[in-house]
Computed example of a mutant assay.
Amino acid sequence: MSEAPAKQLLHLVIGGEMSALEGVEFKNLDEVDIVGVYPNYASAYAVWKQKAQMTVDNAEMRYFIVHMHKLLDPAQTS
């Protein structure tokens, strides 16, 4: 019996310096780090964690995981 392939749930990892410690507004959009798009949350989380740890000394630098699959298909429940 063949196993069905895992459903592709795209996630974007993005980061940059924030204009303030509270809130989510980038200081300079030209310097936003678009790390990449990943096929599932687990692989996006691994990259997010690595990037966040690399910038731990900069309190203004933050990285995010964007659930692109929810933006592309809002009716999707996963």
Rank of each mutant, 00 (worst) to 15 (best):
E22T: 13
N58R: 09
A20Q: 14
A46H: 06
K27M: 09
E3K: 13
K51Y: 03
D57A: 15
M18E: 04
L10K: 08
L71E: 06
Q8C: 11
Q50W: 00
S78H: 12
D30G: 09
I65Q: 01
K27C: 07
H67C: 03
T77V: 15
Y38A: 03
V24E: 12
V35Q: 02
S78E: 15
V24D: 14
R62L: 11
K27V: 05
H11M: 05
G16T: 07
Q50R: 12
L29K: 10
Y41C: 00
M54V: 02
Q8N: 10
M54T: 04
D30C: 05
A42P: 00
L72N: 10
Q8Y: 12
V37A: 04
Q53M: 08
G23S: 08
M68S: 02
K70R: 14
V24W: 02
D33P: 10
V56D: 14
S2I: 01
F64R: 03
I14G: 02
V66N: 05
F64A: 12
Y45S: 11
Y38Q: 06
A4D: 12
Y38P: 07
N58P: 07
V24S: 08
M68R: 00
D73R: 10
L29V: 14
A6R: 13
D33E: 15
A46L: 13
K49V: 01
W48S: 01
G16N: 06
W48A: 03
K51Q: 14
D57L: 13
V47I: 12
T55H: 15
L21T: 09
E3D: 10
D33F: 03
A42Y: 07
V56K: 14
G23N: 10
M54K: 13
D73M: 04
Q53W: 00
L12I: 01
D33V: 11
P39R: 09
Y38K: 07
Q8D: 09
I14D: 05
D33R: 11
D57T: 08
Y63W: 03
V66G: 01
M1V: 08
